[in-house]
Design a protein around this nucleic acid. Structure first.
Lengths: 262, 262
DNA sequence: ATACATAGAGTATGACATACACAGTGTAGT
DNA sequence: ACTACACTGTGTATGTCATACTCTATGTAT
């Protein structure tokens, strides 16, 4: 449960849109939402989200921990604001007229944001995020990319969602792998693994390990995954995008072709 | 950096495969990895991952907090073990001979796991997860589903990865929405929103809000998103899967047909 | 002027993860 | 048997967090 204002809107949303009335009386304010969020983002970029504590943020601004609570109802709200701040887009983005290219461009934009702010993966997403200004801008741009496609409104939204999640997943994976560094398994360790990864229990995976090139590689969800060497995330990123686009082409049929011409 | 054993294998991996030598001397053990992990999973299922504290787990087993550290090197390791435990699969799963169906079945299996253990989304994934027994089983099954497709080994792995991430994303989204509950925005709040979501800045999104059906609906990544009413996640799940499968069909060309041909 | 809403500081509290030292326990080696 | 000691689980302590509450100083509306 997000905490909300009297308007029913989540506080974070109201704040992000600047809908919060500013007090008339009292001492002048030394802080602001913007400065707090900016400081928090800076710390997250440099030292990871774990380093973003209320104390660290306050200290970096030269204020007391508790002073932040004048501007932000709690850490969660701050995180939500950070999430939106990280999704800021340069005002002028021109998308290719071909929807395929446009979709790729759009995906690349999102990817860029994720790469610049790896910690985004750790902040909880929810209904709130959609209502935030920058996130909404991204969604808007995504819809624009698909404009020429003969899909229902809902399908377009779905495509946007699916694509953005794909990009998010792959970037997250990429970063997770980069952070952990390559595991260096001993001869002995590898041997032990070979012993347990038997042909009977793992008929399709076992060959990969028996082969000897046990690059423990990447991973996935609790669901499954694989073992491609780290750099391959790029390949997976493209693969997914290619499949989705190919899928869209076949679904859109001839109509899509029209959009491509000229 | 995961902490590893002398074999170079992450401790969690060694533990999960039962590669850890058990002591010979000393009092008999009252606890075990399995019991600890099982207790932790139970708590997570019932009260969410946040409720999984070392103290809570220990208490639920009738032991002291610190006793857990005899079996588990730290909370992170425990979480990794929980992740694998939640990916356990019933031994006998039969996949449809048609790869399309098989892929759907496989996706459904993963989805089931996510739904049963929503907290999975919160546990960090990485190289380690791939090396865990149950996760590996899932990967194996995924490869089996794609067996008949004329793809390279790497592409198959990629597909598995992409699909599993898609399922993960959609299930995560579904759960996030369910947890937050529907936002109930006041007339006033809605009006304020309409005012800031202008046609100029949000040409494609604005109409959705102006229309009056401001179901704040779902969300996506820091990237973009949409506003379909909650139940629509199902639609997005299908959409993504359909697109990927259609993409695979067009990529695999005639060969895929063969596999389908009844 | 003056009252009072407000800003930021100070202090306090309660979760947590985890380090460390100890007391009891059962087995290996005699 | 006996004994040493590897190992078990406990108790206590520490440091990091988020956040509640209280107080003093501040500036604006009256």
């Amino acid at each position: 449960m997000v905490d909300t204002t009297e308007t029913g809107l989540p506080r974070a949303v109201a704040v992000a849109w600047g809908m919060q009335e500013t007090p008339q009386r009292g001492p002048s304010r030394g802080l602001s939402h913007e400065r707090i969020v900016a400081a928090a983002v800076r710390i997250a970029d440099e030292e990871g989200l774990a380093a973003v504590t209320m104390q660290a943020v306050a200290k970096s601004l030269g204020f007391t921990t508790m002073s932040l609570y004048r501007y932000v109802s709690g850490k969660e709200e701050m995180l939500q604001l950070m999430g939106d701040a990280a999704a800021r887009l340069s005002e002028k983005v021109t998308l290719d007229p071909d929807w395929r290219q446009a979709l790729r461009q759009w995906a690349a934009l999102i990817r860029e944001a994720w790469r610049a702010h790896p910690w985004l993966r750790e902040i909880p997403r929810g209904q709130v995020s959609v209502l935030m200004p920058n996130q909404m801008r991204l969604a808007d741009l995504g819809l624009q990319a698909l404009e020429s496609l003969p899909l229902t409104r809902d399908d377009k939204i779905g495509v946007i969602l699916v694509v953005s999640q794909h990009v998010a997943s792959m970037t997250e994976l990429e970063l997770a792998l980069a952070q952990e560094g390559q595991l260096t398994v001993t001869e002995e360790g590898a041997a032990m693994l070979k012993e347990v990864i038997t042909e009977e229990r793992y008929p399709h995976v076992a060959p990969l390990y028996q082969a000897g090139d046990y690059s423990p590689g990447s991973t996935a969800s609790p669901p499954a995954t694989d073992e491609p060497p780290v750099e391959n995330v790029e390949a997976e990123y493209d693969l997914g995008l290619d499949l989705i686009i190919a899928g869209l082409e076949s679904r859109a049929g001839g109509a899509a072709e029209t959009a491509t011409r000229h």
